[in-house]
Nucleic acid binder design. Sequence first.
DNA 1: TAGATTGTTAATCGATTAACAATC
DNA 2: TAGATTGTTAATCGATTAACAATC
Lengths: 226, 226
Amino acid sequence: MKVQSPQKPPVSEQTLARLPGYLLILRRLLQEGNREASAAQVARELLVSPVLVRKDLAAVSRVGGKPKTGFDLAQLIGDIEHYLGADTRREVILVGAGSLGCALMSFSGFRDLGFRIVAAFDSDPALTGLTLWDVPILSMEQLPAFCRGLEIRLAILTVPARAAPSAAGLLIASGIRAIWNFAPVHLDKPADVLIKNENLAASLALLAGRLGHHIPAGRPEKEGKA
Amino acid sequence: MKVQSPQKPPVSEQTLARLPGYLLILRRLLQEGNREASAAQVARELLVSPVLVRKDLAAVSRVGGKPKTGFDLAQLIGDIEHYLGADTRREVILVGAGSLGCALMSFSGFRDLGFRIVAAFDSDPALTGLTLWDVPILSMEQLPAFCRGLEIRLAILTVPARAAPSAAGLLIASGIRAIWNFAPVHLDKPADVLIKNENLAASLALLAGRLGHHIPAGRPEKEGKA
DNA sequence: TAGATTGTTAATCGATTAACAATC
DNA sequence: TAGATTGTTAATCGATTAACAATC
């Protein structure tokens, strides 16, 4: 039976974005031998306010923490993992096996959060048939049947900009529900498909812009500590 | 002589983050033969409100647009480029020539925004001395002198998580002012150094989380069009 | 018990949007 | 001129923070 949590209000985009960060810290604390952690402890590491951490955790964890001791680490980690993974298949395909695509295939960080790139697709016949980092590279023609067959819902799009719109169309037509798009182009989509644009060049420009204009980065470091 | 623009209030982080997107669209419009563009035109492509575009542009452009005709494309592109690049050297170094690092070296998108990876550094002696995609790979020992000599201020950090803290320390000691950190660890830093954390696995988890919980992605598509 | 830490309600803060006068 | 589009002032909206009562 499915035990969802429909009574809680949906968490904000910002809260969701902080969850993976919490997960990393909580896991490390657990590995270091702790059984519990306080919101203040987590907040210090992420440089956010403790209240924010408590609010975020309250939004996604069913158990909550205990006064004086804090949160049960194992329990909390499980809750966050469940929340991030709830109702979502963790199998991912990758479209575009160029240098960036191959780098993502080799990237171990996805595995730590439970994701697995199960196949890559490329229009270059020289690449199809190869297996890189345990990921088989298939032809674009094989994509629809593959996605339908395995009910894949997540795709990473690392093709050149000019190829991205048609590739995205093919993905959507093949049942993909969310696309992580690394091409710097706007992709049209139906309302029920999610597209997250990742523009690496823009990210670098943003950093350089902040540097040039001395905009303080987020909250300042806290003075003094325990 | 330096002509800065100290009288304008610093733009918000959000505005800054949208500038590269404007730049891409405006350049494309110019290439397509247009001389001018309206805020509404740009807004439609980025799915943001036209008022927001006007506010953003007013914050970074000195000239402003003209009623009826809109903004002069060449002028506006120049202003945004200048704003993003103001007071900032565009030379970047890359630390950690693993698969992700190499992918970024080969990435052409940086060039389009005026950045150039001038050198990569790696502790693996098998890599040092090589030149990949025109980027020479040097040893970590050469880093401080290189950065000091060329006054490099921007660095991309793509080393494994366990090596990141010490590498960041070396970078900061070598005069680097901003670090784009791909390792999923918190890096300590003095107040005047910027660190932008890029956690690719967390980004994917965020997308999957949104998918699982059906959180609408930003503003909905507008109905109807010109 | 005393004290640390939680969870929640109210206040603050800042970004976005709406409304509208100015102007080419 | 008439009309489209800009720039700005005020209203809205939502996230973060502050304050504080609850509780192990």
